[in-house]
Design a binder for these strands. Structure first.
Lengths: 127, 127
DNA sequence: CCGGTAAATCTACCCCGGTAAACGAACAAG
DNA sequence: CTTGTTCGTTTACCGGGGTAGATTTACCGG
């Protein structure tokens, strides 16, 4: 299980795949182009590279490719998060969270939910 | 102020720079080689690339280069964290922290300190 | 049957991180 | 003076992300 490193656009493609489950290259191009224009062939190239890597697969429906994600979102999220955690924060969850609290603005209700979450986590000492 | 993208080894070099303030290329090579062997010329090449990017500078002392970091650790940390936050967690601090709590094992005392930190953050509503 | 349309493939760049050998300069020891 | 060591510089290569034009393939409508 190699960590599977994904680039910026590749991640965006995977996210579209995860949201919709089954999409054509054209759909991906359209959705990506809403943010910044991108050539259809570029998307196709990246999809081929993703497929070569085992991150996606395609089925042929009506002579057009329908792509499906193979790599789980949870896995990619996990490896990306752990990557930042270890490389930048030396593995300290406290360090990362402290940084987020200090440098990112957080809505008060989010903060409240966070406190609840941590409390619940603390309760799970004795199962 | 471009985000300044750094690779894996480049980040390690910057971290050594940040720890020591002023180091020679040799010191960096030695320190990096404790983890995984790396050629001295590789380190020098990366240092040149970092300098070309404005991340470091060098002074000449006794005919050898002494490198100093120009880019602040806080800035790099910040951009890396925000990068993950926006690209993977859609900007949701809650999402990222929740992920960390769920998937990373955290020492009980770290959890306690986290709760304190969040409480203190909550108090700063009315200054 | 023919031309348009749309999809897929081929091919070719550029950039940059990482890797390192090869070369050159300068000094230190003998 | 010659040789070896230690720097720094030059140069080259690989891999992979990103980009996209050009080309082929296949269908569909007139």
């Amino acid at each position: 299980m190699t960590p599977l490193r994904l680039g910026k656009v590749q991640l965006q493609i995977m996210q579209i795949l995860w949201r919709h489950g089954r999409v054509t290259a054209r759909q991906i191009t359209d959705e990506l182009s809403q943010q910044s224009p991108i050539a259809h062939s570029t998307v196709q190239t990246l999809l081929r590279k993703l497929e070569a890597k085992g991150a996606v697969a395609h089925e042929v429906v009506d002579r057009t490719f329908v792509f499906v994600p193979l790599q789980e979102q949870a896995d990619v999220t996990e490896s990306a998060a752990r990557d930042l955690l270890t490389r930048v924060f030396g593995g300290s969850v406290y360090g990362l969270v402290a940084h987020l609290l200090r440098h990112e603005k957080i809505a008060p209700d989010e903060l409240a939910r966070l406190r609840q979450l941590i409390d619940k986590e603390g309760q799970q000492k004795k199962p």
